[in-house]
Design a protein around this nucleic acid. Structure first.
Length: 467
RNA sequence: GGUCGGGUGGCCGAGAGGCGAGGCAAGGGACUGCAAAUCCCUCUACACGGGUUCAAAUCCCGUCCCGACCUCCA
C-alpha cells in the first residue's frame, strides 16, 4: 500500500507525511467563533478534517485532535448587544448549534475541545514569555502587541511582504510601534468583559487563544494545523508569529480547506438562513449532507446549489439501497474492508473524488451480482463499499446516524407490511392489478417503497423529500 | 497595488503532457402486468489566441472573465 502524502500550504507542495512521534498524530483545527449558527461552509471544514482524522486512524495512527471554540471576540460582544443577551450566553447558545450540526453530520467529537475563555492563564503566560523575549510590548494602554518587524519568518505562510500589506486603521495606532503590529491582548473598555493581567485588565485579541491552546494540549510542536483558506492571513500568520517568537516549533504542516461557494462566490453570513445546516437538514438527512460536503476534494471550491445537493443525495441513496439489499442476501451486515485502490486514493492527499469513482465501480459490480445471484461478489462489493463509506464517515450502519432501529418496532412494522404484501401478491395472482397497485400506492403514501425483485417484493422507508 | 485560486460536457466534479475518472440529468434497449430498482448502450468537454512538443485540457507567452485574502471570516 502506498503511504500518505498531504499538501502543505506553507511549502505549497505535496509531501510524504511523517509524524513527529511514530504512530501518533497531533492535529489542531481552528474551530468556530461562536457568534452565529453554522452554515454549510463552516461544517465543510469540520467534515473535511474529520475525514482526515478518520483516515489517519484507519491507517493505524493514534490521533489527538484539538478543535477549539473561540467564545470571546469583537463580533460576539457586538452581537450580545444586538441580541440583548450576555456575551457568554450568546456564545454558549451558538456553540450548541455548532455541536448539534457536527453531531448531525457524524463529525467525531475532538479529543479535546478547549474554549478560549478557559485558557486566559495560558494566554497571559504566553504574553509574558513574548514580552520577556522582546517580541511583544505593552505600551501602557492595556493592549499588548506583537512586534512583527522583528520577525524574519513573518508572512511565510501567505508569502506576502510586510510592506505590501495595507496598514490597519486602528484607533490605537498611536500606541503601536508599527501599524502592522497586531494586538495579542486588548485593554478593557467600559461595558466589556475583562480579565486581570500584569499589563492591566483586558481581553484576548483574536489570535492568541489558538497559540495558547495548541501549546497547552499539543506541546511546542505538533503535526498538522488546519482551518479554512481565509484563515491563512492574518490568523495563521499571527499564530505562527506568536508561537515561533515564544520559541516553539509549532505546526509542522498546514492544511486548508476551500469554501462552499454559491454562484462562484464565497458564502457569507449576509446570505440569510437558507444555507444554515439546520435549514438544509429539513431537505436531506445528515448522512446525505455529509456525503455532499465531503464529495469534492478538500482543496477545491464546492459550488452549492439545491439541485446539486439533491442529486448528490440521490446518488448516495443508490449506494445505501445496495448495502441494505446486500445485507438481506448475505444474511448479515457487510464487514467494512476498503480496497487497496481506495487506500491509494486517500493516501494521495485525500483524493476523495477518486474514491467515489471506485465506490461507483463496486456498486455496479455489486448490483450486477445481485441479478446474477453471485453471493461472493455481492459480499465483496458490499464490504468494499461499506469500508470506504466508513472512512468517509458515511456508513449507513453507523448508529451515530440514529439508524439503529428498535428491534421490536421494526419487526412489528415488517409483519404489518408483510400482511399487506401478501394481499397484494394474492391480487396479482388473480390479475387484479387495480387492487395490487392500490396496496402499493397506499404504502407509498405512507413513505414505504415497494419493489418487486426476483427474490420477491421488498420494502424500504423512502428518504425522498416527498416523504 | 501585493498575494493566491479558478474557467472542463445540460449540471456537479476528477485529472495535470500520450489510453475520454466518476456521478446526476437526458435518449435508446433489456427485465416487469404496470411501476420501481437494476444492468447494457449512446450523447454533449477542457475560456480565447499564439507557442513548445512526435503528442497539450495538462507546459510556456499573451488576452478575456470569475473569485479569495490584505487585521471580522470555515
Amino acid at each position: 500500500m502506498s503511504s500518505l502524502e498531504l499538501y502543505d500550504t506553507r511549502s505549497r507542495s505535496v509531501n510524504s507525511f511523517v509524524p513527529l512521534k511514530k504512530g501518533e498524530v497531533s492535529i489542531y483545527l481552528c474551530g468556530a467563533t461562536v457568534q452565529a449558527p453554522p452554515h454549510i461552509g463552516h461544517i465543510r471544514s469540520g467534515v473535511n478534517f474529520d475525514i482526515l482524522r478518520r483516515w489517519l486512524t484507519k491507517s493505524g495512527y493514534n490521533v489527538t485532535f484539538i478543535r477549539n471554540v473561540t467564545d470571546i471576540d469583537d463580533k460576539i460582544l457586538q452581537k450580545s448587544v444586538t441580541e440583548k443577551m450576555p456575551w457568554w450566553a450568546l456564545a454558549q447558545k451558538y456553540e450548541r448549534t455548532f455541536s448539534q450540526a457536527y453531531e448531525s453530520l457524524n463529525v467525531l467529537p475532538p479529543t479535546y475541545e478547549p474554549r478560549a475563555t478557559g485558557h486566559i492563564t495560558q494566554m497571559i503566560d504566553l504574553m509574558a514569555t513574548l514580552i520577556q523575549r522582546g517580541a511583544a510590548y505593552a505600551p501602557g494602554n492595556g493592549d499588548v502587541y506583537l512586534e512583527v518587524r522583528k520577525l524574519t519568518s513573518y508572512l511565510t505562510l501567505s508569502r506576502q511582504k510586510l510592506d505590501d500589506l495595507l496598514p490597519a486603521d486602528d484607533a490605537e495606532e498611536k500606541f503601536k510601534k508599527d501599524p502592522r503590529d497586531f494586538a495579542l491582548w486588548k485593554g478593557a473598555k467600559a461595558g466589556e468583559p475583562s480579565w486581570p493581567t500584569p499589563w492591566g485588565p483586558g481581553r484576548p485579541g483574536w489570535h492568541l487563544e489558538c497559540s495558547a491552546m495548541a501549546h497547552a494540549y499539543l506541546g511546542e510542536s505538533f503535526d498538522i494545523h488546519g482551518g479554512g483558506l481565509d484563515l491563512i492571513f492574518p490568523h495563521h500568520e499571527n499564530e505562527i508569529a506568536q508561537s515561533e517568537s515564544a520559541g516553539y516549533g509549532f505546526a509542522r504542516s498546514w492544511m486548508h480547506n476551500a469554501w462552499v461557494t454559491t454562484s462562484g462566490e464565497k458564502m457569507s453570513k449576509s446570505l440569510g438562513n437558507s444555507l444554515q445546516v439546520t435549514e438544509l437538514l429539513k431537505h436531506v438527512r445528515g448522512i446525505e449532507l455529509r456525503w455532499y460536503l465531503g464529495s469534492a476534494h478538500y482543496r477545491s471550491m464546492l459550488e452549492f446549489s439545491p439541485a446539486a445537493l439533491e442529486e448528490s443525495a440521490t446518488s448516495f441513496r443508490r449506494i445505501e439501497s445496495f448495502l441494505h439489499r446486500a445485507t438481506e442476501i448475505i444474511g448479515h451486515i457487510p464487514t467494512p474492508k476498503y480496497s487497496k485502490a481506495f487506500a491509494d486514493a486517500m493516501n494521495n492527499d485525500l483524493a476523495v473524488p477518486q474514491g467515489l469513482a471506485l465506490i461507483a465501480e463496486s456498486l455496479r459490480l455489486g448490483n450486477s451480482a445481485i441479478t446474477a445471484e453471485d453471493k461472493k461478489t455481492i459480499e465483496n462489493s458490499a464490504n468494499e463499499i461499506r469500508g470506504a463509506l466508513e472512512v468517509l464517515g458515511c456508513d449507513p450502519f453507523d448508529p451515530s446516524f440514529g439508524l439503529s432501529q428498535s428491534g421490536d418496532l421494526t419487526a412489528a412494522l415488517d409483519g404489518t407490511i408483510q400482511l399487506a404484501l401478501a394481499q397484494r401478491a394474492a391480487a396479482r395472482d388473480r390479475k387484479d392489478f387495480a387492487a395490487s397497485d392500490a396496496i402499493r400506492d397506499g404504502l407509498s403514501a405512507l413513505g414505504i417503497t415497494i419493489e418487486d425483485t426476483p427474490q420477491g417484493p421488498r420494502w424500504s422507508v423512502s428518504h425522498t423529500e416527498e416523504r
